[in-house]
């Protein structure tokens, strides 16, 4: 009797195992399928870029003038040649370093303050009443319109550009953090409170980890607008940086130089956004596959 009875819960464990195996199997199956279609997707992606390059080559080589004019537009080979020339010069790398320092400083400030103030305004009525009206009024102002303000406020150009980058990235982070806090399932917080957690622990153990997916949505958008604004600010008031150099090239009618600048901005923007994306995925592995 004992023998058969004792098997009871074990049978349950086996059943649970069976369920798990099924889950793993479907999971692996799906991942496997995704890997195959992922492999197929890379050539498609590369082909898309290659087609754009080819079209560019043909349009410029044939000097097409059909409302849009390609006769004076540099072709991909001109740009590649100019790119090859620039990467050998220290100035190219200095400009990149300068722009990266500006954007990373502004972005880091925006990330920290956006999350802190987003959580504060969402969770404390006091902080909300105090800060929210200010944010609502400041938010619609395009960050690039702050250039005159920045020139007035800051002793050096450098700080002004960082300020504008910060202003651009701050609001997307703030708003998405606020929304993420408000959307947190109440039961997570309630459960941890009935286990004895106070306000501070709820904040650290529930709110901050729980809002991460939302925060990363804001960080991605923030990184995008930060690039737009750092480049524009450099064009208007910089002494260095990729944006400044690109505008410089235009004023001396160096069109291949302009396009090298644009390609550089595109690449840097893509790399930094990808870095945010990868960090976001690592920190939110717990999300169901579909939502990731």
């Amino acid at each position: 009797m004992t023998a058969t009875r004792a098997r009871g819960p074990r049978a349950d464990a086996t059943r649970a195992d069976a369920t798990r195996t099924d889950v793993t199997r479907t999971g692996a199956g799906r991942a496997g399928g995704a890997r195959v279609s992922g492999l197929l997707r890379w050539p498609v992606r590369a082909a898309s870029l290659a087609t754009a390059l080819l079209a560019w080559q043909i349009l410029t080589a044939a000097n097409v003038r059909f409302w849009v004019r390609f006769d004076r537009f540099p072709g991909p080979m001109d740009v590649l040649r100019e790119f090859g020339r620039q990467v050998e010069e220290a100035q190219f790398w200095q400009d990149i370093a300068q722009s990266l320092v500006r954007i990373l400083t502004g972005f880091a400030l925006a990330a920290v303050l956006g999350v802190v103030l987003g959580v504060a305004t969402a969770r404390s009525r006091w902080a909300g009443d105090l800060l929210q009206p200010l944010f609502e009024v400041a938010r619609p102002i395009p960050a690039i319109a702050l250039v005159p303000v920045a020139i007035l406020l800051f002793p050096a150009n450098e700080q002004g550009i960082v300020f504008i980058t910060f202003a651009a990235a701050f609001f997307p982070v703030l708003v998405s953090t606020r929304h993420a806090v408000k959307a947190l399932p109440v039961v997570w917080e309630d459960a941890v409170r009935t286990l004895g957690a106070g306000r501070r622990r709820v904040l650290l153990r529930v709110v901050l980890p729980g809002v991460l997916p939302g925060v990363f949505g804001g960080l991605s958008i923030g990184m995008g607008v930060a690039w737009i604004c750092v480049i524009s600010a450099e064009m208007i008031s910089g002494d260095f940086g990729v944006g400044y150099r690109t505008w410089q090239a235009y004023t001396i009618v160096d069109y291949p130089g302009v396009l090298v600048g644009m390609a550089t901005i595109g690449l840097l923007g893509w790399l930094t956004s990808a870095a945010v994306e990868v960090a976001g995925r690592r920190l939110t592995r717990w999300l169901p596959r579909e939502e990731r």
């Binding site: 309630d190 941890v192 409170r193 009935t194 980890p209 729980g210 999300l287």
Partner: peptide, 26 residues
């Protein structure tokens, strides 16, 4: 609330970013 009075919730109350063990550790 107090740690003296714990509530076992009807619906899902585990923190989804913590493993089963880390939920208990909390």
């Amino acid at each position: 609330t107090s740690a003296d009075r714990a509530l076992v919730f009807q619906d899902d109350a585990l923190l989804p970013w913590r493993t089963a063990r880390r939920n208990v550790e909390l």
